[in-house]
């Protein structure tokens, strides 16, 4: 077990899931804006944009799930229990994994919230 956790960890994994939320958010916003301004006009249906947002959402949730799974595996390394506050490389990795898992959960919820526009809007 020691070999798997003693390698150098980085902080990047923490940022992955929220970054996926951010990309999903920006892409959805940009798609909707450009669609309304350039393609459909204000009063026509925007099915194309909604389809695109649906595709983004599926991809984003899949990505967040993968990151969350990676976090969960780190969280469960060995037999450490919360609060992961030992001065050991194992607990450092477990902590980073657990934080990644939690951030993935939050990102999944926030992404789902964004996707609710699919249910509420048919026009700009």
């Amino acid at each position: 077990m020691r070999e798997t956790v003693n390698k150098q960890e980085t902080l990047w994994l923490l940022a992955f899931s929220p970054a996926i939320w951010a990309i999903h958010f920006l892409l959805s916003y940009a798609t909707a804006s450009v669609w309304c301004a350039k393609i459909s006009g204000r009063d026509n249906p925007i099915d194309g944009a909604l389809l695109a947002i649906l595709v983004y959402t599926v991809l984003a949730l899949a990505g967040i799930f993968v990151v969350g799974w990676l976090g969960y595996r780190r969280h469960r390394i060995g037999n450490g229990n919360l609060p992961h506050d030992d001065d050991t490389p194992e607990d450092r990795t477990r902590f980073l994994g657990f934080a990644t898992l939690l951030l993935s959960g939050l990102s999944a919820v926030a992404t789902t919230f964004s996707a609710f526009v699919l249910f509420f809007f048919r026009r700009c």
Partner: peptide, 19 residues
């Protein structure tokens, strides 16, 4: 702004209440 844009930002504004 288009309603769909407002919807996205409203969603994020509610989500931030969670953390």
């Amino acid at each position: 702004l288009p309603g769909i844009s407002l919807g996205l930002f409203s969603a994020a504004s509610e989500a931030v209440a969670i953390p």
